[in-house]
Structures are given as structure tokens and as C-alpha cells.
Design a protein around this nucleic acid. Structure first.
Lengths: 232, 232
DNA sequence: AGCCCCTTTCACGGGATCTTCACGCCTCGA
DNA sequence: TCGAGGCGTGAAGATCCCGTGAAAGGGGCT
């Protein structure tokens, strides 16, 4: 069934995760080092990787980078509380999401389901997508809100495209800046604040109770709208 | 069967792509430089080219441009860079699609199928088309407005043809300039302003309340007229 | 050569867009 | 409890882009 690769150097945590995951129908494989993690990802081809950052042999971001060299399988990072810097680095390296230790197993399972659902095949080149009242046609570069075409500036559109093509994934400040403004940018978070604000306004989203773009303080933003995959 | 030309300077990636593609029934040829890519495209006449952008000898867009000089075969670009400008540059040069490394093989195969399917069936854009009071005969190079033949200069006609054969799609400045004036152009937006203006004038369109050509600030223009597909 | 038409180039507002700054609020940690 | 940093908000200045009008080049035809 669904194979999960758990990477953690602490045997107790490996055991706890194995128990909980198997109770929910996952097939679990556990390893304790970064080297084993890369090999395991290649040979077992799991559907999900849960990766602890504090490994003895390799840096967590290095593991992510190597795994990303050959597969896009969802990677959820588990990190300790005070390692904000490492979490951002891990996400920038290509992780899909992170969960802070200690964590509620319910939350981890929910994020795992979301990450795997997102990774499912079927809709990579979606020419047109829909999120409730919002409709996007990437090929035509058109955005409609409740049927009305929305006027977006070039920067606003690129930012929206970056969000909508990575639903549910936590996107770091640096990742967004590089994607929209180009490499060379990465620290100009004021740009993001300004344009996220403009987007929220035009899309009718509220920063205090967001339905579309959620702020992840200190890290980045996340597009949380469900793709309501409608067809003509 | 279906021949694919893989262009990448890293032997591991060449090998990985060859394995996956052959497993799906493609006949694979691999090369490692841009020069070989152009030669291979000419001599083997493959049905698809997978082109890595970071080649040692030639710039990726240069490869695309040269190949486009003699064939329209589908080209899918593989790149580690994800910045919008790189993507636009490759697509403007004539690439069909763009996949960011690392990528899921499933997605690449899906895009490959889509690109080849698109290239297959010829839908030679209707020899004659109509947009309200505007009628065009592409074969005869004739344009009629309310029954009267319109006098268009060669440049004006080419621009109109570029618009009318891509209804609803946003055409970037660079794309239009390359299409009408030829490759080598791309920054001369004043040309566009002049000729779009001339076209609007002759077609009776108003820049402030356009019915035919909408300007998309900072990006390009869009032909928004509905094709009222009438018959003789 | 002279003329005409087409192409290319320049200059000028006006408006939209991008960039930057300042302020208040909230959260987190000392 | 207090200070620092991050975020949302609002706004202002600089900059870019477009439409408009017009004026030089340039090539072909008479």
C-alpha cells in the first residue's frame, strides 16, 4: 500500500512513528542516517519521506538535495523548536512541508495525506484550474473571479501563478522572490508583503482569516485553496 | 517507432532518461552538446527533443533558435533554473514546454505525449476566418472590413495574422516581434506601439475601449475578438 | 532624378506600476 | 514586563510603459 520512509536517529521516535503510521494503514520503513535515507528513497521508492533534521552523518538539507536529484516524492521535515533557520533552508532545498517537534500525530497525519494527495499524478499540465470562485487559465494568462476577468499587474500575476501551481506547499520568502523577481533576490520581504497584500485585496481574501494565502510567520506563505477541478 | 533526442551534458541524467523512455517504448538517442543537438535534430529527424538548458558549448536558447530554423519538432526544455525570465526566454525562442529539474518522470512523460500529440494532427488554421465585421482570407492574404477590402502594409498584415491566428492568447512583446520582424528582434517595443496603433486605426478599434486588440501592460497584447465562424 | 509609400526613430504627457518608507500591532523570548 | 523582530497597512515618490503625433531614412517605380 502506501510506503513511508521514516528518517530519524532516535530509536524511540522511529518506533513511535512506525506504530502510529502502521495503525493508519501505511507500510513503514525506518532508517537512522542520511546515507540510508538517500539509498532507501532510491531503492524502495516510497510515497512519502518523513525526515528529521538532526542527523548524525549528513546535514538534513543535503539529504533533501540528493533525493531531489532523482525524485519529487513528498518530503515532510520534522524539526526541533529552535531551528527556524534550518527549517527555512530545508524548505528552500526542496522539502514540501515541515512539522515542529513535539507535534500532534493528528497534524502529522493530516499533512502527510495532503502532501501525498498533492503528489498524485494526473494533473501536471493543467491548462486551466479552479479554486472555488477563482479560475485560472495559465495558457492564456487569464484570471477570472466569479466570471469577471481580473486585472493583475505582471508581478501580481507571476506571484499568483507561483502560488496556484504549488497548492498546499509551504513556499519560503526566498523561493518566492527568486521565482518572481529572479535569482539575485531573496531578502526583499517587503516586496512580498506589498504584493501579497495586493493579491489578497484583488482576490477578496482577508489576512486575518485567510481562505487562499496563509502567512507562515518567519518562513513564507502557503496557498491553501482546494483545487475544485471543474470541467467545461 | 517514436524517436526522442535527449540533450544533456550529465551522463547520469542521459542514462536515466534513456532507461525511462525506452521502458515506455521510445527509441532514444542521446547527445551531450548543443552542436550535436542541432546536428542530431537535422539528421535523425526525431519526433521529440528533450533539451537541458545548461549546456557547455551553446546557450540553450541558441540551440532552440537554430533547430527552429529548419524544423518544428516539439522541444521540451529541462532546466534547474525556475525563474520566470528563463522560462519566457526559452518559450519565446520556440520551445514547446518547460519542465523544472528535478522533475517527476510521470510528469515528463505526460508532457512529452502532449507535445507530440499537439504536433501531430494538422489543423491548418481555417483558410478563411471572421470576427464580426472583419473577414480574413489567409490564403489570399485578403482582409475585408464590412465588405470593403482593407489596404494593409506587409508589416501590418503579418501582425494582424499573428493576432488572428492566436485568439484569446496573450502574446508577449518579444513573441510578436520575433514572429513579425524575425529573430534578432525582441526589445523594439516602439515598433509594436506604432503598428498596433496603425492596425487599430484601420480596423476601427479604440485603444481606450478595445474590441479587438487589448494591451496587457508590461507584457504584450491580446486579440479578444470572438471567431464568428461564418460560412459562405 | 523625383515621388510615394513604408519603415524606423524620436519626443512628449499621462497613467499605471514598482519601490521604498513609516507606523502600529502582535508574538516571542529575555 | 519589556524589547526586538515580523507582519499588515497606508501612502508617497520614482520609474516605467503606453498612446499619440510627427518627422526622418529608404527602396522601388515612373
Amino acid at each position: 500500500m502506501n510506503r513511508v520512509l521514516v528518517v530519524d536517529d532516535e530509536p524511540q521516535i522511529r518506533r513511535a512513528l512506525r506504530t502510529s503510521l502502521e495503525a493508519h494503514g501505511y507500510e513503514v520503513q525506518t532508517v537512522g542516517t542520511g546515507e540510508e535515507a538517500v539509498i532507501g528513497a532510491a531503492e524502495s521508492a516510497p510515497e512519502l519521506m518523513l525526515l528529521d533534521l538532526g542527523l548524525p552523518d549528513l546535514d538534513g538539507t543535503e539529504v533533501i538535495r540528493r533525493v531531489r536529484g532523482f525524485t519529487e516524492l513528498p518530503i515532510i521535515v520534522l524539526s526541533v523548536r529552535d531551528a527556524q533557520q534550518d527549517k527555512v533552508a530545508a524548505l528552500d532545498a526542496g522539502a514540501d512541508d515541515y512539522v515542529t517537534k513535539p507535534f500532534a500525530m493528528e497534524e502529522l497525519l493530516a499533512r502527510a495525506r495532503a502532501a501525498m494527495r498533492r503528489a498524485q499524478p494526473g494533473e501536471p499540465p493543467a491548462p486551466t484550474m479552479r479554486f472555488g470562485a477563482l479560475e485560472m487559465d495559465l495558457g492564456r494568462r487569464l484570471v477570472l473571479l466569479e466570471g469577471e476577468t481580473l486585472r493583475l499587474t505582471p508581478t501580481e500575476y507571476q506571484l499568483l501563478e507561483a502560488f496556484a501551481t504549488h497548492p498546499g506547499k509551504l513556499l519560503t520568502h526566498q523561493w518566492l522572490l527568486r521565482k518572481v523577481w529572479g535569482q539575485g533576490y531573496g531578502t526583499e520581504t517587503t516586496y512580498l508583503r506589498t504584493y501579497v497584500r495586493a493579491l489578497r485585496k484583488k482576490l477578496g481574501d482577508d489576512a486575518q482569516a485567510p481562505q487562499l494565502i496563509v502567512t507562515e510567520p518567519g518562513v513564507g506563505y502557503r496557498w491553501i485553496a482546494e483545487s475544485t477541478d471543474a470541467e467545461s
